[in-house]
Design a binder for these strands. Structure first.
Lengths: 179, 179
DNA sequence: CCTTGCCATGCAACTCGTTGCATAGGTACG
DNA sequence: CGTACCTATGCAACGAGTTGCATGGCAAGG
């Protein structure tokens, strides 16, 4: 499971509450790993039990205590261990590809492909804006941020490819469906 | 859930046993959706209960009956319904990107990236061989096979991008880790 | 004052998928 | 005759993730 590790990476950069993490998983880290707040809280509890993170509790009246989590030495060790193990190839599972392969309803696929294309464009814009803001000069990237930069580059390349694929699909299907 | 739909697509092309499907999910359809035989049997049972597929039973002595599944009208209807609904954007979850982002151990990442690159190359070869064999002349593709062709194109584009990304990573990290 | 939205935490039920295990006939090779 | 591999089906336990629900403080604006 990598949610734990994504959390460790995030906490290694900066301590945070579950809520903070949920927001990070909605942006930056979230580009590569999605997680709901429920799942984050559950996972943090387990990680604390495992000693990978420690919580600083700020008691609050009338509602649940606020807990700020920080990575521990054991957590850092686990992160190193995780880093060294080969990553499994991510299981490719695409509803869209299955649907395309079936090709039951051309007009619906075309519509779906347009939606998909728009989504790719939106993400690409987000990634590129992020790249421009954080790494305006790729030649001047510092070592500690190189990983994040390369991860972002992966996102950019993959969104561009997604757009190209959509265009290819639309090029071959559009004329056929329109009339 | 799309496993059901992937199975429907596959059975629409040709009736099959659970075992046959498991093998298909290890090739062709399996390029876009992975599934173990256990899961396929479980899902087929549910799909039969739902009336999407029907089984022709061939009794066998001393061991479990052989069941050949075929898609039903209800199954075809479900496939049409599924085709028309917008596909959710697949959740991107990448252990590798998380690891890269953390960048705890450069040498390990480099090794991992090389492994990953080799995997992409292997898949690309497989996809391209498949494309060459089934669709030697892209201009002459028949309508009924266009979906499968476009799905395969997606695989090819995505593997190429994966390779390019690995090369970019290696270009930036290799010299640093080697010496 | 009331509503809206953000900060903040969490439980419970459920679905989907993985892993390990079990069974058993048929066929080909040495 | 044994062994290995392919055909063929399935259960059980577990892990990971989703969806729905619940609680409650605090601040800003109308």
């Amino acid at each position: 499971m990598a949610l734990e590790h994504a959390i460790l990476v995030s906490l290694a950069e900066q301590a945070a509450t579950g809520y903070d993490l949920a927001r990070r998983f909605d942006a930056s880290i979230g580009y590569f790993w999605r997680a709901s707040h429920q799942q984050i809280y559950k996972t943090l509890a387990r990680m604390e039990a495992d000693g990978w993170v420690s919580a600083t509790i700020e008691p609050r009246e009338g509602t649940a205590d606020k807990k700020t989590y920080a990575i521990t030495d054991a957590g850092r060790e686990e992160l190193t261990r995780f880093s060294a193990e080969p990553s499994p190839r991510e299981a490719l599972r695409s509803d869209f590809a299955v649907k395309l392969r079936g090709l039951a309803d051309v007009a619906a696929i075309v519509e779906d492909t347009r939606r998909r294309r728009a989504d790719h464009v939106e993400r690409l814009d987000r990634y590129e804006a992020s790249a421009k803001r954080h790494y305006p000069d790729p030649a001047a990237i510092e070592e500690h941020e190189r990983g994040a930069y390369l991860a972002l580059r992966g996102g950019i390349l993959s969104e561009r490819t997604g757009i190209a694929w959509c265009d290819e699909i639309l090029g071959q299907l559009e004329t056929r469906s329109e009339r």
